[in-house]
């Protein structure tokens, strides 16, 4: 059964199908599995970060630190692997711990100091970017046989290579969707987005949930950083500037309401694919400037924001009509 709250998700899905159909009609080669595999690989780091962003936005918050945390993670890994003999797996664990702690600290600041998430994560953005610069201002290449092993892992279907990082993104989305819709933590995230005061009165552990949300976002930004370092085989402090904005765009195009409370993790997945598709189209075309990606994404975002406004407005109007009906009904009875 289709419910009104599912409508934005369905529209995202329809947009994706339509966009793919348009692309395929212009360039039939875009229907190939190789394109699909590349879509997953190229957008893996953004997708993973966007899962975290989905939780943050569902709760009515925002996390601007993501891009910087990804860059920091990359530089940190590159420097650690160059300077020490630490195994990459241990380094991964260490950096995940660091970024999760960073997110936890931001969440705690937001909750206990009652600061707006925008400001706190803006500070986090500068802090993480600064920390990356302190580690190294140069791009540091990563050369380690374990990296080669990981990069060499793929599942080959008809000449298309589905790489490890693409799979990791899909897995993150599946786990993210399960956590959002099937756990108490996920329900509490929606509850916070629906109204903090009511959530508190209903016994939602607001402190634990808020801190948890930013910890998840920080941790996933760390994971995204690991994936990005596997993707580029380097750590560079100037990389992934503005990725948080791409993630926000993917979340909104995925049908999540920016004010929180409504949305789906699966929607974000299709938001990522739509954005990736636009980029792929421009690559196929070859004559268009890559900046057209931004223009199309901008227009899409605008369209989706208008759509959200329209849906909210329609819902309000329906509620008002329902009230009128009960009012006239009782008037007729008396």
């Amino acid at each position: 059964m289709i419910r009104s709250t599912h409508l934005p998700l369905l529209i995202t899905l329809a947009t994706f199908v339509l966009a793919y159909a348009l692309c395929a009609s212009a360039y039939p080669a875009m229907l190939s599995l190789r394109v699909v595999a590349n879509l997953l690989t190229d957008n893996a780091f953004l997708g993973i970060a966007a899962v975290g962003m989905t939780f943050v936005i569902l709760s009515g918050g925002i996390d601007l630190s993501i891009g910087s945390v990804i860059a920091f993670t990359g530089v940190f890994l590159a420097v650690i692997l160059r300077e020490t003999s630490m195994h990459p797996l241990a380094a991964f664990a260490l950096v995940l711990l660091l970024t999760t702690a960073f997110g936890t600290a931001m969440g705690a600041t937001i909750h206990y100091l009652e600061m707006p998430p925008f400001i706190v994560t803006l500070a986090g953005m500068f802090l993480a970017r600064g920390a990356a610069y302190v580690l190294s201002t140069e791009s540091v290449p990563i050369t380690h046989e374990f990296y080669d092993t990981l990069q060499g892992l793929y599942w080959k279907v008809d000449g298309a290579r589905f790489r490890l990082i693409g799979g990791l993104m899909v897995l993150t989305f599946i786990v993210g969707a399960l956590v959002a819709h099937r756990t108490r933590f996920g329900q509490n995230v929606y509850a916070l987005g629906g109204g903090e005061q009511a959530a508190k009165l209903m016994g939602v552990p607001v402190a634990r949930t808020t801190i948890g949300i930013y910890a998840v976002s920080g941790g996933l930004a760390g994971l995204s950083g690991i994936v990005f370092s596997l993707y580029t085989s380097a750590g560079y402090s100037l990389a992934t500037v503005g990725v948080e904005l791409d993630a926000i765009a993917a979340v909104v195009i995925g049908g999540t309401l920016l004010t929180g409370g409504y949305g789906f993790v699966a929607g974000t997945f299709f938001g990522i694919l739509i954005m990736g598709l636009i980029q792929t189209y421009i690559v196929f075309d070859g004559t268009l400037s890559s900046w057209w990606t931004k223009i199309v994404i901008g227009s899409l975002l605008f369209a989706f924001i208008l759509l959200q406004k329209g849906l909210t407005w329609a819902a309000k109007k329906r509620a008002a009509q329902a009230r009128m009906r009960t009012a006239t009904g009782s008037a007729a009875l008396s």
Partner: peptide, 19 residues
Amino acid sequence: NLLPNLTVAENLFLGRQPM
């Protein structure tokens, strides 16, 4: 003081959902 964005059942069981 319920949450408008959740379903009736989610509101009823928030914090003590059957697992």
